[in-house]
Amino acid sequence: MLDTRTASPALATPAAVGRRLGNELLEPLHLVAYMSDEPNEALQALGYEGYWPGYFAARSAPLGRVPAEVVDALFYNFAPGEVAACIPACWDVATPEAALEAHRQGCVAALRRVLGDLADTPAVARAADLAIRAAMDAPMEGRILYAALRSLPVPDEPLTRLWHAATLLREHRGNGHVVALVSEGIDGQEAHVLQALDWGMAPADYGRLDPLTPAQLDAVVDGLRKRGLVDAEGKFTPAGRETRNRIEALTDALAAPAYDCLQPHEIDQLTADLEPLVERIATAGY
């Protein structure tokens, strides 16, 4: 078990460590991929047209040529038909191996552009070494997408290794988040509604709910209302807020064991090395 006795007071529990490192400091390094041109351009160079075919090809590539139903179950929160519109047709364009490599190169190129002079510092190399230890030490049981990623070779180049570690830990946390959602009986579209409400947004304004028709979205919100999670004004009830909090708490708890292999001084070092990178990413508008 992680010894936090000498760690920063802000990271006094394993769950706090998991949230700070995984959700706040490592995930932004991974998410640059979804907000940059370079990964999309690399996938489009293979022949993928538009955003989503390349997305589904690249993210599911570690699994191999599995059916759309498997990807839909693992990714969890896509609207009916979204996955099947791209899988298996995406494998007529390029192999999983080609999609994976193109995406990786594009993501690292985007991260290098955003980080600028920070990309080749000793801090990146230190962070990569510590993060990959956590990424390769996390429990695999029940985490299928994470396990598939962990079967891939670990890159040597420091920035690429750091991105790979961030991706592993992001999907590890995401697999645990699906477990938390399932435990509360919240399906993928309901999860989007709860996220929108947590951010103070109307569900109709939340982009990931765009594939739903107004009638479909109304049905999702009405289902949450009938269960006492959303009120007549479309906001959280106390029970809804408690449900959301339980989901997040369990997600944090399930993510925490990944960092048990790091000593308190290593957690502090990793935090210190990642903070300037995340600040640069935020300054760049990501």
Rank of each mutant, 00 (worst) to 15 (best):
T95I: 05
P96D: 08
P96C: 06
P96E: 01
P96S: 01
E97R: 11
A98R: 15
A98T: 05
L100N: 08
L100Q: 12
E101S: 14
A102H: 04
H103E: 09
H103R: 15
H103S: 13
R104L: 15
R104K: 10
R104W: 11
Q105M: 07
Q105C: 11
Q105Y: 03
Q105S: 06
G106M: 10
G106V: 04
C107V: 13
C107A: 14
C107R: 10
C107L: 04
V108I: 03
V108F: 00
V108N: 00
A109M: 03
R112M: 05
R112L: 11
R113P: 03
V114Y: 01
L115A: 11
G116A: 07
L118V: 02
L118T: 01
A119K: 06
A119I: 12
D120P: 04
D120V: 06
T121R: 12
T121Q: 02
P122T: 03
P122C: 08
P122I: 03
P122Q: 09
P122K: 09
A123D: 13
A123T: 06
V124K: 02
A125T: 06
A128C: 03
D129F: 01
L130A: 01
L130P: 02
A131D: 07
A131T: 02
I132Q: 06
I132P: 00
R133K: 08
A134C: 14
A135T: 01
M136Y: 01
M136L: 14
D137W: 05
A138H: 00
A138P: 03
M140A: 15
R143D: 00
R143Y: 00
R143N: 00
I144S: 00
I144W: 01
L145E: 03
R150V: 07
R150E: 05
S151Q: 15
S151M: 08
L152E: 14
P153S: 09
P153W: 12
V154S: 06
P155W: 06
D156R: 10
D156S: 13
E157L: 04
E157K: 10
E157G: 04
P158R: 07
P158D: 12
P158N: 10
P158M: 09
L159I: 07
T160S: 15
T160C: 11
L162M: 04
H164W: 12
H164Y: 15
A165G: 08
A166C: 10
L168F: 02
L169K: 07
R170S: 13
E171L: 13
H172I: 03
H172L: 10
G174A: 13
N175I: 05
G176W: 00
H177R: 14
V178K: 09
V178P: 06
V179H: 14
V179G: 01
V179R: 12
V179M: 13
A180C: 07
L181G: 05
L181M: 15
S183D: 15
S183R: 14
E184K: 10
G185C: 03
G185D: 09
I186W: 08
D187Y: 09
G188R: 08
E190M: 08
A191G: 14
A191N: 14
V193K: 08
A196D: 12
A196E: 14
L197E: 03
D198G: 10
W199N: 14
W199K: 12
W199T: 02
W199D: 13
A202H: 15
A204K: 14
